[in-house]
Design a binder for these strands. Structure first.
Lengths: 100, 100
DNA sequence: TTTTACAATATCGTATTCCGATATTATCAT
DNA sequence: ATGATAATATCGGAATACGATATTGTAAAA
């Protein structure tokens, strides 16, 4: 009932980070935890897979620091979604925070 | 995959409006449509019922303009949630919009 | 070469949610 | 009473959430 609100914010975070640099599962979990968001592997990995399947992210396996990771990057379609959400976020911010 | 992002924003909208004044189903649908959000009765009414059940909104039936409506108002618990989401929204805004 | 340890990703099952279409309820005018 | 309209409620198939568990890949130790 409430959780989905956080999850939505988490997804926007993911798109935003995937726009700036490659992101991978565990790294994201740590980054999100730093921001006060909790998400476990059972939710995050299927989410990344769905974002890839939907064409918003691309995936490339790479070995870094002796660890096999799947790095995700944003696609043009993903960037379009992100920009769309940015616009909605801006509007929501203005209504819910600025004008009270 | 994407829809839930909009839905989260819609729920925050609902809480925000229910904080300012009484809101009811169809009125909300029109208001949200004005903001570019689409939500049908099959989603909105269960959502309102769940928010009430969760203790975030209270409900009072009233007859206005010859129409029987169920007006929802925010509760202290709902306001706490709203403020929590406001804080997260602010943080997200700063990260995703301001600092690019 | 096997084994061990560890990091990273993937899957499973139950409970919950979404939402278009349809049904139900309430009110007033005729 | 009857009809018209506004508002709310319900149904069912498809999709999602997520803790717990399993699987895969890498490198150092035995």
């Amino acid at each position: 009932m409430i959780r989905d609100l956080e999850l939505a914010f988490i997804k926007i975070h993911i798109l935003h980070h995937a726009d700036k640099e490659g992101v991978f599962g565990i790294g994201l979990m740590a980054e999100l935890a730093r921001h006060g968001y909790g998400i476990g592997p059972g939710t995050l990995y299927p989410t990344l897979a769905k974002l890839e399947k939907g064409g918003f992210l691309t995936c490339a396996a790479r070995t870094v620091e002796h660890k096999q990771r799947k790095y995700y990057h944003i696609t043009p379609k993903g960037r379009a979604l992100l920009n769309n959400m940015r616009a909605k976020l801006k509007e929501l911010y203005q209504e819910v925070i600025e004008e009270q």
